[in-house]
C-alpha cells in the first residue's frame, strides 16, 4: 500500500494526529466554555510568539558572517563592454538585486528552473519540471489573498481595496455565500503538495514530520475555514466583534460563536506560534539568501574578510638578518651583505 511504510514509521501519522489533537483541544475548549482562554489568551499569545520569534530568528541569522560574495548566478557577469551582461541574473547594481529578489519572492524564479533527472534507457535525461512551481505559486498566492481578505474582520470601516479584493475573488457568483476562487485553489494546491510527498518515492524518502505537520495544519485551517463559510455557518457579526475587540486591545468575552470558529482560530493560533520554530521561516529567510541578495561585484570592489586579524609574518629580510652570520659561514648566497 502506498506510503504505508511512512505511516508505520509514524512520519505521516504523528503530524496528522498532532493536528487532530489540536482540533479536539479547541473543541474541548468550546464544550468546557473556555471562551476567554481560546478566544483571547491563545490568539494574543500566539501572535506575540510569532512576532518575537520571527525577529529573534532573523537577527540570529543576521549575526552569521557573510564575508564573501557568492556569485552562484545563471547569467553573464558584467565584463567587457562588448559582452552583454545579464542584469537580472547576475546584477552588478543594487537595483538589479532588488529586481531579482522581487521576482524571486513574487514568482519563485529559482523554482521555475526546477529540473527532473531520469534514466531513459541507458541515457541520463534532464527535463523541465514545473508542477511543483505551479503548485507552490498557487498555494502562496491563494494564501496571501485569503490573508488580505481576512483584513475585513480587523478594520472598521473596511477599506475599499479589501472589499474589491473579495469581490474579485468571488466574481463567479457561485452559491450563497459566494464561493471564493482562492478557497478552492488553496485546497487543491495543498492536496497536490501533500500527494506529491507521498506518491513520488524520492520525495517520500526525504520528507520529514516537519514537512507533513505544516501541510496538515494548513489543510486543517483551510478546511475549517471553508466549512465555516459554506456548511456550519457562524454569525459573522459576532466574529468581527471579537476580532475588533482584540485589535483595539479591549478584548471582550466572546459570546458563543460556534465550535468550528474556535477550531479555525485555534489552528491559526497554532500556525502563528509554530511559525518561528519551523521551515515556514523561509518567509523571512528568502530575503537573506546569499545567492539572491548579493551584488556580484567581486571584480570591481575589493571585499575584505571582516574577521581578518593582523598576522605575524617573518619576512625574508628579517630571516636573513637573523641568520646572516650562520648563512655566510655555510656559504649560502645572501641578498644583502
Amino acid at each position: 500500500m502506498w506510503a504505508w511504510r511512512e505511516v508505520r514509521e509514524l512520519k505521516i501519522l504523528y503530524p496528522l494526529l498532532g493536528v487532530l489533537a489540536l482540533v479536539l483541544l479547541a473543541y474541548a475548549g468550546v464544550v468546557a466554555h473556555l471562551n476567554v482562554f481560546f478566544g483571547i489568551v491563545v490568539p494574543y499569545l500566539a501572535f506575540l510568539l510569532f512576532l518575537v520569534g520571527f525577529m529573534v530568528r532573523v537577527i540570529t541569522w543576521g549575526r552569521s558572517p557573510v564575508p564573501f560574495r557568492i556569485p552562484t548566478t545563471c547569467g553573464q557577469q558584467k565584463s567587457l563592454p562588448w559582452i552583454k551582461q545579464n542584469r537580472l541574473e547576475n546584477p552588478s547594481s543594487a537595483l538589479g538585486v532588488v529586481g531579482r529578489m522581487t521576482l524571486e519572492v513574487l514568482l519563485f524564479r529559482s523554482l521555475f528552473r526546477n529540473l527532473k533527472t531520469e534514466k531513459r534507457g541507458d541515457r541520463l535525461a534532464y527535463g523541465s519540471a514545473k508542477w511543483l512551481w505551479l503548485g507552490g505559486l498557487v498555494f502562496h498566492w491563494s494564501f496571501l489573498i485569503i490573508v488580505l481578505r481576512h483584513l475585513r474582520l480587523f478594520m472598521e470601516p473596511v477599506p475599499v481595496l479589501i472589499t474589491q479584493l473579495g469581490d474579485l475573488d468571488s466574481f463567479l457568483q457561485i452559491g450563497i455565500p459566494l464561493f471564493y476562487i482562492t478557497d478552492g485553489l488553496i485546497l487543491a494546491a495543498l492536496t497536490y503538495l501533500f500527494l506529491r510527498r507521498v506518491l513520488v518515492p524520492q520525495i517520500r524518502y526525504i520528507s520529514l514530520q516537519a514537512d507533513y505537520f505544516p501541510l496538515f495544519l494548513l489543510l486543517g485551517i483551510a478546511a475549517s475555514g471553508v466549512l465555516m463559510r459554506y456548511v456550519w455557518k457562524v454569525d459573522i457579526v459576532e466574529v468581527k466583534a471579537l476580532t475588533m475587540s482584540l485589535v483595539t486591545l479591549r478584548p471582550e468575552v466572546p459570546l458563543s460563536i460556534g465550535a468550528i470558529f474556535y477550531i479555525h482560530l485555534f489552528l491559526v493560533s497554532a500556525l502563528f506560534a509554530y511559525f518561528p520554530l519551523s521551515k515556514l521561516m523561509h518567509m523571512g529567510g528568502v530575503f537573506l539568501s546569499p545567492t539572491r541578495n548579493m551584488i556580484n561585484n567581486s571584480r570591481s570592489v575589493r571585499h575584505i574578510n571582516p574577521w581578518n586579524y593582523p598576522v605575524q609574518v617573518h619576512t625574508y629580510e628579517a630571516y636573513e638578518a637573523e641568520f646572516r652570520a650562520k648563512m655566510k659561514k655555510a656559504g649560502l648566497p645572501l641578498e644583502t651583505e
Binding site: 510569532f50 512576532l51 520571527f54 525577529m55 483584513l151 480587523f154 478594520m155 472598521e156 466583534a241 475588533m244 475587540s245 485589535v247 483595539t248 486591545l249 479591549r250 523571512g284
Partner: peptide, 18 residues
Amino acid sequence: LFACLALMPFLINIGKAA
C-alpha cells in the same frame, strides 16, 4: 517594516472603539 505590517491591524485601530 515586517513588524509594522504584522501590527497594521493594531496600529490602524489605535484609539478606536469598534
